[in-house]
Design a protein around this nucleic acid. Sequence first.
DNA 1: AGTTAGCACTCGTTCGAGGTGAGTGCTAAC
DNA 2: GTTAGCACTCACCTCGAACGAGTGCTAACT
Lengths: 340, 340
Amino acid sequence: MGMDERKFKILQAIIDDYILTAVPVGSRTISKKYDMGLSSATIRNEMSDLEELGYLDQPHVSAGRVPSAKAYRLYVDQLLRSGRIQSDSEAAVRAHFLGRMRQMEDVIDHAAQVLSSLTNYTAVVLTPSAPQPHIRTLQLVPVSSTSALVVIVTDSGIVRDTVIRVSDQLDSDTLYAISKTLTQELAGHTLQEAVSLLPGISSRMQDNERLLQGLSGFFQESAGSAVPAHVAIGGTSNMLSYPEYSDMEKARSFLSLMETRDKLAAIIAQQGEMAFTVRIGPETGVPEMADCSIVTATYSTHAGQQGTIGVIGPTRMQYSRVLSILGTMGHQLSELFGDE
Amino acid sequence: MGMDERKFKILQAIIDDYILTAVPVGSRTISKKYDMGLSSATIRNEMSDLEELGYLDQPHVSAGRVPSAKAYRLYVDQLLRSGRIQSDSEAAVRAHFLGRMRQMEDVIDHAAQVLSSLTNYTAVVLTPSAPQPHIRTLQLVPVSSTSALVVIVTDSGIVRDTVIRVSDQLDSDTLYAISKTLTQELAGHTLQEAVSLLPGISSRMQDNERLLQGLSGFFQESAGSAVPAHVAIGGTSNMLSYPEYSDMEKARSFLSLMETRDKLAAIIAQQGEMAFTVRIGPETGVPEMADCSIVTATYSTHAGQQGTIGVIGPTRMQYSRVLSILGTMGHQLSELFGDE
DNA sequence: AGTTAGCACTCGTTCGAGGTGAGTGCTAAC
DNA sequence: GTTAGCACTCACCTCGAACGAGTGCTAACT
């Protein structure tokens, strides 16, 4: 007994139906709603086979069948192989980007909003995680008499900043001079390298212990954080509309996971070389998401950095729709960040 | 029939009990658990009076009584009048701030986290909304050959930044020179004023149409946004643990409100001159929060700007606990931002 | 050999009846 | 003014019956 054409068609019908209704689907439903010229009895036999093959689960003996993770896997693989994820949703996505937005974070936030409202699932958007960003410019901006803002521009175009304390003898011009020196010395180096270079520079400059200490700390912190600069989340409340989350405890643990952004980022960021990644149920590796699926795609910036966008939904997710929207969104973001 | 001492004590007991259990409380419970030397029958008579006075509601004829919004109002007023909100929770709050944190936004985010985990409700923290921030320093940092980052430091210590396009003839030194000129001209002025000053300055400088246009746009945008710079939210999932939110639809609409940060900020920011504001149920003015209470407090920065911290929970909120924690947290934040 | 009709069987769901108990309001006695 | 007692209400739980969607199997049909 193998997986023939007909079995696959039936399986597909079951998945389609289940995605829409979230109700175990019976043989009669298939034979009537999806006219495949077969009686319910025949479908029944096939379904029995499909169950034996591991594609269907039966919640109770007298309930309909429910697609297993394996079934979704097959379904999605098929979807991806067929390649043609039509992007009729392109217009919708594009329309949302009309407003000019400048900063990456704004775009990211907005993208998450759009993504969740288009899909009705939860959306997560990560800024590119530069594995080792190289410093391009460093500048100190006086904030008060005793503190300055450090702005670092890296080659990934991402700006990091923090306020550090400085001795109160430093006026704007001095700070600028220091900025120039530091930029000259550090440009092209990674943050990691900068940490070890700093002491050498310090000796050649009039001592600004405090400033350099602050800088060093900041570098280390930034270099150490593998976490992408920003995590935007949208539509967490969408999950509550799905019956699979009518169990409060489940909903709570899901939401609580969404609140710990770094954990979430780590989960989403597991993205390979592929254009799309689809992780179904247990494949997510996160117990709280045992019956969620995560679909991610990437976008890239002019610096070749990769960012990730993802959608989290129930395993009976509208995969084809989600893939299509993610694809379009990814393109849009790449365009937006790529043309600088 | 008026509100005498004894009635008040009984009412207080009812509120205390209901806050803990979320179950309508009966006369017997009061006479037994809170020994006031009265039989249930007497309590019953008093409760009947209290209901007539509008302090209690009865869900069904044979259920216990539930405090009304009016009752909470009385309770809270009493709490505030008594003044002594003891801050035994000070230690807990303080411990959480040991780690050094630099940027305001980090602090804000963290504060929201701490606040929600201490109270088990939802916490919201707003950065101060400077009504008209005055420019202190303005600096341009080159990002790429055709774009620069504008950093504005205002007297409220808040840094705003954005990336704008510049013509490609501008190197770092030129940008710094321009920055100096602009700082000289604009320091002490509000963003609003800066918009009208820009054209005048432009004429005295070598024309950098593009740059000045970008700046002008940014000023206008920043000046226009009455919305505080940052809204941090924590513990939205906490709400799901309370039985009043076992209704999914309610939970959904609540969460969805939490997701629209600007709406939320507008709601929270309605803070008068008082140290504390407590809005109970309908007093919030938001239909989605008909059975929530919002408690807010303020903190202030060295510039005299006021930020807001708030806790959102069910009407049967542990007011005294929340007020105490908010008070402590407010102090901590004020200290943190005030000593700069 | 594959397909279908028919039928017995399973089991979750719905619905109503009856019992239970927490709580009230009233009255009469202290 | 307080309390004991009692009748009454009504949400909630439980149980069982009826229901029905769905299955698996067998036998007949093409």
